[in-house]
Every structure is written in C-alpha cells, then in structure tokens.
C-alpha cells in the first residue's frame, strides 16, 4: 500500500507501478513490451475513470485533503508571473498560513491571497496546517484594501480546514478578524474572484471568500463545519463523517445545483495531484475570464450586484 495515495486510489497506483516496471524492463532488455504497456495504460485509464466517476462526498473530501494535492503557492508559481509576496499585518505578526502579494496573470496586475498548507512536517507546522490566525486575516485585509486603492482585482485561493481554534487566536480576536474581513470584502470597490482549490473550511474560508465570482475545483469541498465536526455534534461520533459529508452537501456539484457557486473547474483525470500543470492552466483560464467579465462593470454597479448576490443567500 502506497501511503502517498488514498485507499480507493490503490488499484490505479498498482497499475502505474506495473507500467513503470515494464518500461524499465523494456528499456534494459531487447524485448518489445510496448503492446503490453499500452494495454495496461488503457486499463489504468479505464480503472481511473471508473473509480473517479463514482466518488462519494466523503471520498471527495479526502481528495480535497490529499497529501499530494497542489497548494496555493504551487498554483501561484504556475499561474502567475512576477509574484511579489507581501508580509505582515503591521500590528502583530506575519502569519505564514495565509500568503499574499502582487502578481500578474496574463499580463493583468492583481492582488493574490490564499491559505497555504505545508508539504512536509516542518512546513506543516510553520504553516499551522493552513489554519490562519487573526493576524493572517488582518494581513489579507490590508492587502485587499491596498488592491482597492490601486484598482487591482483581488484573486483569492481557498484551502483551509478552518480558522485556528487556539488561546492566542481568541485573545487576539479571531471572531473580529473574520467578521471584519467579511464586512470589508462585501463592499470592496474592486472585483474579487475566489476559488476553492481544496478545503473550504467554514468561516475561516469565508474570511477570504466573499466575492463576485465563486469557483470550486471539481474535487474541492466547502462547508459550514468539517464533516467530522458535524458528525461529532449531530451523530455524537466523528465516525459518521461520511454521512455528515453527504447530508451537508459539501461538494462542488451539489453546491452548483443549489446555486451557491458560479463555476466548477474540472480537474485532470484522477484529480489535481495527477497533473498540477494541467490544473493550473484551467485555473488560469477561469480567473482571467472572470476578471475580464468583471473589470468593465462600473464599480458602483459591481458593489450593488455583489450586495444582491450576498443578500440572495436566502433560500439558496
């Protein structure tokens, strides 16, 4: 069992391992294995399609948290040019679980902000597992207000289990930091395009997610509480997380049906971690299209349209 992959991905991984073994043999010896390899590749693709066409909301939750899934900085490197990271909330600290800065996308200058998870243990700790502190949200707010002053669109990438529940976070006003960002974003006089690239964890996600266009990756999730949290409250046991994921409708397809998001960005076969470059290209196309659609709207109309969107979250 390859621990870098989820249990339901193992048949795919096994086939892939077989294919690379055959390739190795084919290269070193003078036998023609190309037919066998092609057959296995077809089988692998069919297998992947079959598995990924029948994912439960809980399976999708696990893909959204996949250890190999690309994170914000991975996409920033692929999608944006000349990223200049800006640090600090100017009051207390710099929170590495939120990154942000100036960048260009397709020649357009923007402010990009996203939650950042860590890949290895050391970076996971540094990034606080992608769970922002109040100073992270205040940095984000500072950058958004700067973007407003200079007329730059704001692009946010959402990927967090939630805002950090800790003593220091409470002392420094986690609630206020989130509330303030939501309020400021609701009236920010510049276009905002948000995309959930992995986990959209509750208020901690919304604090950089109030926007004019809300997109979700095909295998990302967005919910008011984690399935485990919901299950432990309503079912009295976190073991019912899969049921909770279904009941809450955490997936992009369900939320699109409910009219709560604008676009689903398709992922490469087998998920974003199978081809970061392909995924990044789709993300780039979506963001550029959204910005171009929004930038010509007079700013007062833009703000009014955003207000109508936000206050229409009545019956979904």
């Amino acid at each position: 069992m390859n621990l870098q992959y989820l249990d339901f991905e193992q048949p795919i991984v096994e086939l892939e391992e077989k294919i690379s073994e055959l390739r190795l043999v084919g290269n070193s010896q003078d036998v023609n294995l190309s037919e066998a390899i092609e057959r296995l590749e077809r089988e692998c693709e069919a297998q992947t399609k079959a598995i990924f066409s029948d994912l439960s909301p809980w399976d999708i939750t696990r893909i959204a948290r996949h250890p190999n899934r690309p994170y914000t900085l991975d996409y920033i490197a692929e999608v944006f040019d000349d990223f200049q990271e800006l640090h600090g909330d100017r009051t207390y600290a710099d929170d590495p679980s939120i990154v942000g800065g100036l960048a260009r996308i397709d020649g357009l200058s923007v402010m990009v902000i996203g939650q950042q998870k860590g890949r290895d243990v050391k970076e996971k700790v540094k990034r606080n597992f992608g769970m922002p502190l109040p100073e992270g949200y205040r940095k984000a707010k500072r950058l958004m207000e700067m973007a407003e002053r200079f007329g730059l669109p704001v692009v946010t990438l959402i990927d967090t289990p939630g805002a950090f529940p800790g003593i220091g976070a409470e002392e420094r006003g986690q609630s206020e930091a989130i509330a303030r960002n939501i309020a400021v974003m609701s009236r920010l006089k510049t276009p905002i395009v948000s995309t959930v690239i992995g986990e959209g964890g509750s208020g901690g996600a919304l604090a950089i997610g109030v926007c004019d266009r809300l997109n979700m990756f095909e295998y990302s999730t967005y919910s008011v509480i984690s399935p485990e949290g919901c299950a432990s409250i309503l079912w009295k046991s976190a073991e019912h997380a899969a049921e909770a994921a279904t009941a809450m409708g955490v997936t992009a397809s369900r939320l699109k049906d409910l009219g709560l998001i604008d676009h689903i960005i398709d992922e490469p076969l087998g998920g974003a971690h199978r081809s970061k470059t392909e995924m990044a290209l789709s993300l780039k196309q979506r963001i550029v299209a959204d910005i171009k659609a929004l930038r010509d709207i007079p700013v007062d109309d833009l703000i009014e349209q955003r207000y109508q969107r936000l206050t229409a979250y009545d019956r979904g």
Partner: peptide, 23 residues
C-alpha cells in the same frame, strides 16, 4: 453559531448579515 442543518447556506448568512451592516 451557524446552523449545521442548513450547511453552506448558513455559512453564507455571515456574509449576508455583514454586508447589510456595511450598508
């Protein structure tokens, strides 16, 4: 807090009420 039984719709109430307060 937010009402879990209304899932993401309840999360969006945070944005809705905050936007109204800005007005």
């Amino acid at each position: 807090g937010a009402r879990m039984q209304e899932a993401l719709i309840s999360l969006m109430q945070m944005a809705k009420t905050s936007a109204a307060l800005e007005k």
